[in-house]
């Protein structure tokens, strides 16, 4: 719009030299930019929770003696199964790998079944039927000072790593 240029009159200048003016402008704009960026970072920091009020991922499953081979003990709240095997004890996540429903143990069929879409798993977590894409993950099992089994649903371990008390 060069034809409009004249409408705005000549450029308005102040008494300062351009160098000085630039310097002050730059300080001002620079400081404001730093504030903008820094407040963004500080805001992100502010929004990051520093403490969590979430239930612990570990729970005490009981004495190892309670898990003879074939015993399956589900824990609804922590969404896990603790299963006694011939060579030890292991824990399975009860969260279906399909869409996250909580699976149930069918004692009459010795299988784990998902009520939502009919996925089925064997006692080692392998998919035997249905839409589930992956086997149920194995969870970390350890022993506390009193000798009780402690399951950590937050730690997934390699399949087949049976815990021997």
């Amino acid at each position: 719009m060069p034809e409009l240029e004249g409408m705005f009159g000549p450029e308005v200048e102040e008494e300062e030299t351009p160098g000085r003016r630039d310097f002050f402008t730059q300080i001002g704009v620079g400081a404001c930019a730093v504030v903008a960026v820094a407040s963004g970072i500080v805001t992100l920091d502010y929004l990051e929770p520093k403490v969590l009020f979430e239930p612990s991922t570990t729970y005490v499953a009981g004495s190892p003696l309670d898990f003879a081979p074939g015993v399956v003990v589900p824990n609804q709240e922590k969404k896990a199964f603790v299963i006694g095997a011939a060579n030890g004890i292991y824990a399975l996540s009860a969260v279906c790998t399909h869409l996250g429903c909580i699976t149930r143990y069918k004692s009459d069929e010795s299988a784990i079944a998902c009520p939502c879409h009919g996925s089925r798993f064997d006692l080692e977590g392998n998919v035997t039927h249905g839409p589930a894409p992956r086997p149920l993950p194995w969870l970390d099992v350890s022993q506390d000072a009193n000798g009780n089994l402690v399951v950590d649903t937050g730690i997934v371990i390699a399949r087949g790593k049976v815990f021997r008390p």
Binding site: F23, Q26, I27, G30, A31, V34
Partner: peptide, 9 residues
Amino acid sequence: MRRRSLLIV
């Protein structure tokens, strides 16, 4: 620029 950053620091 250097003077500015110096001031900020």
